[in-house]
């Protein structure tokens, strides 16, 4: 039988975790289960909910707007992730030096990452204003002519990709820089003595050593871009003609502008499944690379 003092120690442990666990239960676990429950109903907040089985999910599959939203999200996510990771890696390699000028350049590039999305989005709506924006003024001045950055359905999504890359590339840069700094110097010294060129050193030492960093950035950036919302809400409201509507914006519109609560809930559950799939794929790949590297 456990002694009284041991039981008391257990109770202290429970007391320490209880407030956190209660909040997790109410604001994390319950919402997921409740949203799953809601996704089986048709409900507009006013009339009583009507049970619909998997009807909301099959409606999602048939919804042409939803399909467009999925495609937009995929393009936005893949394009942003590719550009920020490649650009961030290049910047990290070039800027990974001591000295004042490099610190200033790093700072200038990273700053936008900690500025709010609202601040950045407003900044760029003004920069890209078709008539008075600085970008088009410069383009007209050098003879290229004005571009309708946010009004042309073929361009607007790519404009949002550009703004997102502009804002977040500094994050990939500093994370890659931390990765570079953890690579032991003697690897490069040995390669240099063996006559390996700078490029060979990059391909055969730097890239493989940065493997875990790359995997980490891949997953976090994919999840970050899946969750994209602010930039769409402030810059384009999903337009023109849904060309910039991405996942969370679609869910927000369904829930808070069209009051299709059940439909929005089904979309949330699909979203949750996608986020989980990406995260679990990461764990699986980490496991494999850990075993392979051992």
């Amino acid at each position: 039988m456990p002694s009284a003092s041991r039981i008391r120690r257990h109770l202290v442990g429970y007391a320490l975790v209880l407030p956190s666990m209660a909040l997790f239960a109410v604001f994390f676990i319950y919402p997921v289960l409740h949203t799953l429950y809601l996704s089986f109903f048709t409900w507009n907040l006013i009339e009583d909910p009507v049970y619909d089985g998997l009807g909301r999910y099959s409606k999602l599959l048939d919804d042409e707007v939803f399909r467009e939203v999925l495609l937009n999200t995929l393009i936005y996510s893949l394009a942003t992730v590719t550009l920020t990771m490649l650009g961030g890696l290049a910047l990290a390699v070039l800027l990974n030096r001591k000295g004042r000028i490099f610190a200033v350049l790093q700072g200038a590039i990273f700053t936008s990452y900690i500025v709010s999305w609202v601040g950045v989005s407003l900044l760029w709506v003004w920069m890209l204003d078709p008539q008075y924006g600085l970008v088009n003024l410069v383009l007209r001045w050098i003879g290229v002519g004005a571009v309708d950055w946010l009004g042309d359905p073929d361009i607007a999504l790519w404009t949002l990709v550009g703004v997102t890359v502009w804002k977040t590339i500094g994050y990939d840069m500093i994370i890659y820089m931390a990765g570079l700094q953890s690579i032991p110097d003697d690897l490069y010294e040995a390669a240099s003595i063996d006559g390996a060129s700078a490029w060979q050193q990059f391909v055969y030492i730097t890239l493989p050593q940065l493997g875990p960093t790359t995997l980490f950035l891949l997953v976090t950036s994919m999840i970050m871009t899946f969750q994209g919302f602010d930039v769409v809400k402030v810059m384009t409201q999903g337009g023109p003609v849904n060309s910039t509507s991405i996942y969370v914006y679609f869910v927000y519109e369904q829930a808070f502008e069209l009051f299709n609560v059940g439909y929005a809930s089904a979309a949330v559950m699909v979203f949750f499944a996608l986020v989980l799939a990406v995260t679990l794929a990461q764990f699986w790949m980490f496991d494999r690379s850990a075993q392979g590297g051992a």
Binding site: Y30, A255, S265
Partner: peptide
């Protein structure tokens, strides 16, 4: 597990709550 539940998954239900 809660690390993997972003606000975008929780907001519809918490709004109603």
């Amino acid at each position: 597990a809660c690390l993997m539940i972003p606000p975008q998954v929780r907001f519809v239900s918490i709004f109603l709550l």
